[in-house]
Design a protein around this nucleic acid. Structure first.
Length: 299
DNA sequence: CTTCTTGTTACTGA
DNA sequence: ATCAGTAACAAGAA
């Protein structure tokens, strides 16, 4: 699942590839993916360019510079990959098909997958013969174009950016105040801290040695600090290793994430705890999600 | 065939 | 108001 580290990786990749390239054509193959007026979607993008890409939580925000009757305005293409969405960038077919004259393939410009395929819902064609594919096996992902005002309204629903310097321990303590839910559902709530999903919630609570079922208001000061530090360190390391691939996640180059080998609890149920070597990783349904934890060293 | 998976929203009931 | 639980969405794996 694309969570903060995966979306951050895609954003960084795409910024190097597609900024300020003219969007020659947009092929919208699955209209249901688009949650703003479909008739405007292609028109707002074609012949324009992406001026910037930002991430808020798990949401990608592409600034689209548009020119209408000499007036320049900015609209925003929002893409949320939900569970199985992918954004894969490829250079023109002449590179992928034949490789270089010496027979080698340019690994950084090509993707191991043959795109488009039956899960391709949008294709953005750029004027330098490169393309961006929005693929989604399960079609939960969404794309929409909004103006500045709508964007602000949407962003109002997002909580703190966990890797932002402004996200301090004090702010985290204030967020926790007066909450009564359990630690897992707190971390999953995008209105509190944005970008954490099922994988990293479990990994963060393991690192902090806190049981996911612990009520937030029962946490001692020391424990709150441990969760706060774990949020920062786990997400930072996951970004460094370009995210986690468990099901279908691929980065913008079509490659897998490397954080998978650092997972301590996610999908390790039934296996021995790597930290205390005594506990067996448990799996339970907490906050409506499959949740993994060590019942020996998480308290 | 059933069950499970996952992010988000919407809804219900306490 | 706040929280827990669940359905819905889609499609595939087991």
């Amino acid at each position: 699942m694309p969570e903060l580290p995966e979306v951050e990786t895609i954003k960084n990749d795409l910024k190097q590839k597609i900024l300020n390239k003219k969007i020659k054509r947009v092929d919208l193959r699955t209209k249901k993916i688009v949650k703003s007026p479909v008739k405007d979607f292609v028109l707002d993008l074609e012949r324009n360019k992406f001026a910037d890409i930002e991430r808020r939580g798990k949401l990608l925000i592409f600034s689209v510079k548009t020119r209408q009757r000499l007036v320049s305005t900015t609209k925003y293409l929002l893409i949320h990959l939900r569970m199985t969405g992918q954004l894969i960038y490829q250079k023109g077919k002449e590179i992928t098909a034949g490789g270089h004259s010496d027979g080698s393939r340019d690994r950084f410009e090509t993707c191991p997958c043959d795109l488009p395929d039956k899960h391709t819902h949008i294709i953005f064609y750029f004027n330098d013969n490169s393309q961006l594919f929005f693929n989604d096996l399960r079609r939960f992902g969404v794309a929409k174009i909004v103006d500045e005002k709508e964007l602000e309204k949407i962003l109002d629903n997002f909580g703190a950016e966990p890797l932002d310097k402004k996200f301090s321990l004090k702010i985290f303590r204030d967020l926790i105040k007066n909450k009564k839910e359990n630690a897992k559902s707190f971390l999953l709530n995008q209105k509190y801290v944005a970008g954490i999903g099922n994988i990293y919630a479990d990994e963060i609570l393991f690192k902090a040695s806190i049981l996911p079922s612990r009520k937030i208001d029962s946490l001692k000061d020391k424990e709150i600090k441990k969760i706060y530090q774990a949020i920062k360190s786990v997400l930072k390391k996951a970004v460094k290793y370009r995210g986690t691939t468990f099901y279908s996640y691929l980065d913008a180059r079509g490659r897998r994430g490397n954080f998978t080998k650092f997972l301590k609890v996610y999908k390790r149920e039934g296996k021995r705890c790597l930290r205390c070597k005594k506990g067996i990783i448990q799996k339970a349904k907490i906050a409506g999600r499959g949740t993994r934890y060590c019942d020996k060293c998480q308290k």
